[in-house]
Structures are given as C-alpha cells and as structure tokens.
Amino acid sequence: MDDFEALVEHYRPRVFRFILASLRNRETAENLTQDCFVRAYRARDRFRGGASVSTWLMQIAANLVRDHESSGRLKFWRRMLASSTDASEVEDWIPDRRMSPEALASAKEQIEAIWKAASKLTERQRTVFLLRFVEEMELLEIAQATGLSEGTVKSHLFRALAAVRKELR
C-alpha cells in the first residue's frame, strides 16, 4: 500500500484485461481502469488486508463494470463497435500464429463461440466467468471480489459453462 505507483504498475494490465473483456470497448476500459485505481487510491486507508490486493482491485473493477453496465451509458455505441471491432478482429487475438490454417480457423471459431456465449450471459455471470477463466481466480477469491456467496458463484459458473458448451457444439 505504501508504493502505490508500483502497485498500479503491477496490477494495471490485469485490471485492464478484465474490464476490456467485460465491456469489449477499449476507450471505456481505459477510463474505467483509471477510475479503478483512483478509487483504490482514495480507499487505500480502508484496505485492511482481509483479501489479497488483487482481489481487492478486482472487486473495485467488478463494481465499476456493474455500475457502467447498469447506467446503460454508451450502450448503443458499444453495441455498434462490438459487432465491428471484435468479430472481425478476433483472428488478430489468436495467440500462436504458427498454427496450420485449419487449426487457426478452428481456434477462431472456438474463441468466437465463447465470446458469443459470454455476450448472452448476465453481467454477474459474465464477471464471474471472466474472473474464473481469464483471470484464473479461485472460487473463494471470486466470492470476495463479487460479494456473492461461493454457492452463487458456482451456479453462475455452471450456467456460463453450459452456455459455452452450447455455443461450441
């Protein structure tokens, strides 16, 4: 908590990644990441060490995402951009480019399917899903970060995976 700059340096990519995956809009993600650290800085005295710093930051980020989603602000634009930006550029985000064309196509399909599944989830379900499978957080950490019970987290994850499985088939 003393070296806030180092903390930002260290956790910024992670927070940004989570928010970007949640909203799929770079500009908003940048802004909300900034907001997240501003809030963290203001609330740094209240951080008791009950959870890890990363969980605490993810909690703030998840709240910001939820506020943003519920405010409905920029929804129209996001929807417009989401269809153009990400669907066409999914290929760019495929990590290993030395795959065979077939494997590449298959990977692209799978990633698109998961995005599609994620887009159909509720905000809470998606948040839980991203925290688990992108940020690879433990169930307990997710429960702390989202303020849900562990059971609720689990049921959200079941739903999310069912949706993913459905899209992958």
Partner: peptide
Amino acid sequence: AALGLFRESVQEMSERR
C-alpha cells in the same frame, strides 16, 4: 483447451492495445 484459447486471446487483446 477452448477456454485456454479464449484466455490467451483476451490476454493478447489487452496487451496489444
């Protein structure tokens, strides 16, 4: 494997911003 691909893809997406 699919979820792993997804994770890496998101990672890639956020890093090459």
